[in-house]
């Protein structure tokens, strides 16, 4: 369909959110900047967001990708909440969910099983991250 083809060239929109109480925003800022420099539109909502706020924002902003960063150790609590809320709003198929931060392999595997599409650690080079986000977003648009 014409529109699906066109959608691939539409700017990718990404919500970059810090959930939890930690203020380590070095990573999200680098990510936001790398995505912007790759032509994407990045919505940044600041520190200490709750899962409810993240999901409401993702829906209003109609983002392709939700990027969640947290280094507070609460990933096994907060990611499931976000997934649950996306389901409740019937939005889990519309947004790709990507996590970042200090997340042990074991937890990363569990989160992926729950529905987090990708976990990108702090060693991920900006160029790799940008490509992965683009891939995930395009795949998601074709699915939707």
């Amino acid at each position: 369909m014409v529109d699906v083809v066109n959608r691939e060239s539409e700017p990718i929109r990404v919500l970059v959110a810090k959930v939890g109480l930690d203020g380590h925003d070095r990573g999200v800022k680098v990510v936001a900047r790398a995505l912007r420099d790759a032509g994407m539109e990045v919505i940044y909502t600041g520190l200490h967001r709750t899962p409810e706020e993240v999901v409401a924002t993702a829906i209003q902003e109609d983002v392709d990708v939700i990027g969640i960063s947290l280094l507070s150790g609460a990933h096994m609590t907060l990611f499931p909440q976000i997934i649950e809320l996306l389901k409740r709003h019937d939005a889990q198929d519309r947004h790709v969910l990507v996590g970042g931060g200090v997340i042990p392999e074991e937890d990363a595997a569990a989160l992926k099983k729950m529905g987090v599409h990708e976990i990108l650690g702090q060693d991920t080079p900006p160029a790799t991250l940008v490509e992965r986000v683009r891939e995930l977003a395009i795949a998601q648009r074709i699915r939707a």
């Binding site: 109480l21 930690d22 507070s72």
Partner: peptide, 22 residues
């Protein structure tokens, strides 16, 4: 832990998942 650093009690809703973590 983060709640203590930020001035939230362990029983605050915003502390969920972070009590004694870091």
């Amino acid at each position: 832990d983060m709640p203590t650093l930020m001035g939230y009690d362990s029983d605050d809703p915003l502390s969920v998942g972070e009590v004694g973590r870091e």
